[in-house]
């Protein structure tokens, strides 16, 4: 009786799962996998990942997100890392999470520039991102804007496109570069900058070039990459006379990664000439290799006068900076 009932129930059950079958044969084995967390945009990591897969046969799983968010995730997952390699993120952010990284020495390390390198090899710079000044060519004549000192010049008061440094990493770097390039007490300089911005800091660093191009601001501070990508006749680029900082973004091997060999292979690949040349030719970035040069129409690395930027100093200053900036902007408001 019971058996008959069970049979009947079996017949009545909505039958399902009669689909395409087993796909696991198509999935790669553990040795052919690599998981990277990246804060780069798809246009940057897409071709690199694709080429890497084709050359090595390793399947890359890409997880995208903001660099702060991804690093926090790495910290949370420290016991059992899901990620093998952090690809992207300014080296000063990577420095703050260096306890989660595995030291490594990529192939061809002798060709890498010293700037932004970790002494222990905990992270490796991937591309250089110098800060530049931009100006509206219709509102500002050539030669009027020369360097960092102009940001404190009352002539530009309220007309500077400068992203909120407590929000934007590049803007924070710009503020600290200002401290390094101009004589005087750091916090006096910050107060002068805040006063000259006249409470008009932009909330998003992506808006800087557009606000200068549209004429709502006269001059602005942004990354060379951003300025070159959004290049237009109305926007001129000035490399500051005092020199500039070029904090690289980097990549780092995660401690306890499940696919460390594949991660090293990826690291070697992105620091190799092919990818570094792609950075310059296709992505408006500067290479970290000494044997890959900027295009002819841009100043060479030597001409930029890149200042020494201590990422640990920048990291340590962050908290006080934020507090002071908040006080200054509240006073202005």
């Amino acid at each position: 009786m019971k058996r008959a009932l069970a049979l009947l129930l079996l017949l009545l059950l909505p039958l399902s799962g009669c689909g395409g079958g087993d796909f696991s044969a198509f999935a790669p084995g553990e040795a052919e996998r690599l998981v990277i967390y990246t804060s780069h945009k798809e246009e940057v990591y897409g071709p690199i990942v694709k080429e890497f897969q084709q050359r090595t046969g390793i399947w890359v799983e890409v997880v995208t997100g903001g660099s702060g968010e991804l690093l926090e995730r790495i910290a949370v997952e420290a016991e059992a890392p899901a990620c093998d390699l952090m690809f992207g993120g300014g080296v000063e952010s990577l420095a703050a999470y260096e306890q989660y990284f595995e030291p490594c020495t990529p192939a061809g390390v002798e060709y890498l520039r010293r700037v932004g390198r970790s002494d222990e090899g905990l992270w490796t710079p991937f591309s250089c991102l110098p800060l530049v000044l931009v100006y509206n060519t219709r509102l500002v004549s050539e030669g009027e804007l020369t360097g960092w000192a102009d940001l404190l010049d009352p002539r530009w008061k309220g007309r500077i496109a400068f992203a909120d440094p407590t929000v934007s990493g590049s803007s924070y770097t710009a503020a600290l570069t200002l401290f390094s390039c101009i004589e005087g007490d750091d916090w006096d300089i910050l107060a002068a900058l805040a006063a000259n911005l006249d409470g008009g800091a932009l909330s998003d660093s992506g808006d800087v070039v557009e606000s200068v191009r549209s004429g709502s601001r006269y001059i602005g501070v942004t990354l060379e990459e951003t300025a070159l990508k959004q290049r237009s006749p109305e926007v001129g680029i000035v490399y500051p006379a005092e020199g500039t900082s070029a904090v690289p973004d980097g990549c780092a091997l995660i401690k306890g990664a499940r696919h460390p060999e594949n991660a090293r292979a990826f690291l070697d690949f992105v620091l190799g000439r092919d990818v570094q040349e792609l950075l310059v030719s296709g992505l408006s970035r500067r290479s970290v290799r000494t044997d890959v040069h900027a295009p002819q129409d841009l100043p060479s690395e030597a001409e930029l006068g890149i200042i020494d930027y201590d990422v640990h100093w920048a990291g340590g200053l962050k908290e006080e900076f934020s507090a002071r900036w908040a006080a200054l902007t509240e006073a202005a408001a």
Binding site: G19, G20, G21, F23, S24, F26, A27, P28, R33, W59, E61
Partner: peptide, 22 residues
């Protein structure tokens, strides 16, 4: 691709069935 890499059934919940050839 995500489903394949995470070992899930391809047709999970989407209502469609999938068949593969190389």
């Amino acid at each position: 691709r995500d489903r394949l890499l995470s070992g899930q059934d391809l047709s999970d919940g989407s209502g469609s069935e999938f068949y593969v050839r190389e």
